[in-house]
Design a protein around this nucleic acid. Structure first.
Lengths: 258, 258
DNA sequence: CTTTGTGAACAGTTTCACAGCC
DNA sequence: GGCTGTGAAACTGTTCACAAAG
């Protein structure tokens, strides 16, 4: 039913680990930069530094694609660019629709990296009739009524949702019904989709909250250092438990959402 | 030297696994929704469904925080909201600066979820003198010259980079030098930062490329199914290798990843 | 000599399944 | 009976370290 899955369940990426797939675009970007500077070959060490990973990981990643390097020399930049592009499916053209042309949707439409690398903005869609016909990033906005027709006419399989949270699931359902099988979701909601549909989410506030967690820990650590670092070494669960259990009472601090 | 790290090396999150931390904001959002509907308690099964994970994972995650549930009953919504908020450091106020007020920066400034949940946009900063003084989302944009002063005056420890790729590293360096220790990077570049500084990146084109990879596989699988699914069961590495090694020559196959 | 490619060890994450408590 | 909390098992991802190739 509506109890669909987010992300991939895990039917296994036919040999290429998901973690590796997620890094291929990073390698590709670094390689493209080298290619533009006409660098002919690059070592795993150099490329890894440019991509912000370590070289062992990079070599392991590449080993899933095949043996594309030359021992003692390194990797041929152009060749690798091609191989990774092909592996990622970027040698073909992907028409994409963006639904929800508010601030964010407009920013996405204007984003250059979108147009490059095999992705083409096939249409912009918004529910506001006042937006219809108005060009954003040179593309006229179309009304949501046209959604199904647009998807089918353009053979769109990738959709970007940049609507308010409340509209996201509904838009998602319509996209999927019309044939979209990959969704990039910017709305702060969990989307339910049937099996076989991939959803990836980009969520500003989640990222910030993760940063806040670590930020808080940094502050805490300084304090702990002052008090003598006695606690480390005790089974983590027990320690947590302790501080957690003391929680209940006291006031709920001011700032919170609750 | 400048060869800093992206993400966290992994000094271990004081007992709470990184994967769990990344899900806490999801739980928090689902709980907040329940709280608004005045739902008093929730089972791991229900909450997991709302957050888009499975219940075993959720219970395991919560077990790292402490024993906050009641067997046979479930979890108290309000209490959990508070505990998770506290764990994430959201019971305090985090002033944030956004650097780069283009399309995306403006969209971020306008994004509501920003203001809620303990984050406050302390300042908007842009390098364009023409922007200075212009209000965006009700906040006047300030010039990059003021960056250091703004950070220090407001005690900012979290910065958001929404500049073009070319400017990102430079902005990052200045933020870090001024005292920022957590960065959310929207620019499509790898940032180098010293140890102790956290960077998280949000990258539209990487997400799209990952979707394209899976999308391509879906197409390939249909073709493979037609040809009789003989290959499954052979050690994945060997299969990969084989098809990969044939790569160099010849035409790019029509449907398949190869 | 340099640098790749990769088994093998290790670390982190998810899932299972059930004991323990309400 | 229902639901949490958690060891243990299974799985995925990372790092090590070195043999093989140029």
């Amino acid at each position: 039913m509506a109890t669909g899955r987010t992300h991939r369940p895990a039917t296994r990426s036919r040999g290429i680990p998901e973690a590796t797939v997620a890094r291929l675009p990073l390698y590709l970007r670094a390689l493209t930069a080298l290619s533009e500077r006409s660098v002919p070959t690059v070592s795993s060490e150099e490329l890894a530094a440019a991509a912000g990973v370590n070289s062992a990981k990079l070599r392991k990643d590449f080993s899933y694609l095949g043996s594309y390097g030359t021992r003692g020399v390194g990797y041929d930049v152009e060749y690798l660019v091609y191989q990774i592009s092909r592996e990622l499916g970027l040698t073909q053209d992907w028409p994409v629709v963006i639904v929800g042309i508010g601030n964010l949707g407009a920013a996405l439409a204007n984003y250059g990296g979108f147009a490059s690398r095999g992705f083409r903005v096939a249409a912009l869609i918004d529910a506001d009739p006042a937006m219809a016909g108005k060009p954003v990033a040179g593309i006229p906005v179309q009304h949501t009524d046209e959604l199904e027709k647009i998807i089918e006419d353009n053979g769109v399989s990738i959709g970007v949702i940049a609507t308010p949270a409340g509209a996201a699931q509904q838009v998602c359902d319509r996209l999927v019904a019309a044939g979209v099988t990959s969704i990039l979701n910017f709305a702060p909601t969990v989307l339910s989709v049937p099996d076989g549909v991939d959803v990836r989410k980009v969520d500003l506030s989640i990222e910030l909250q993760i940063l806040a967690f670590h930020e808080q820990r940094k502050a805490g650590e300084e304090a702990a250092a002052a008090a003598g670092a006695a606690v480390d070494g005790i089974p983590a669960a027990a320690v947590r438990k302790q501080s957690a259990d003391k929680g209940p009472d006291g006031d709920v601090p001011a700032v919170m959402p609750a």
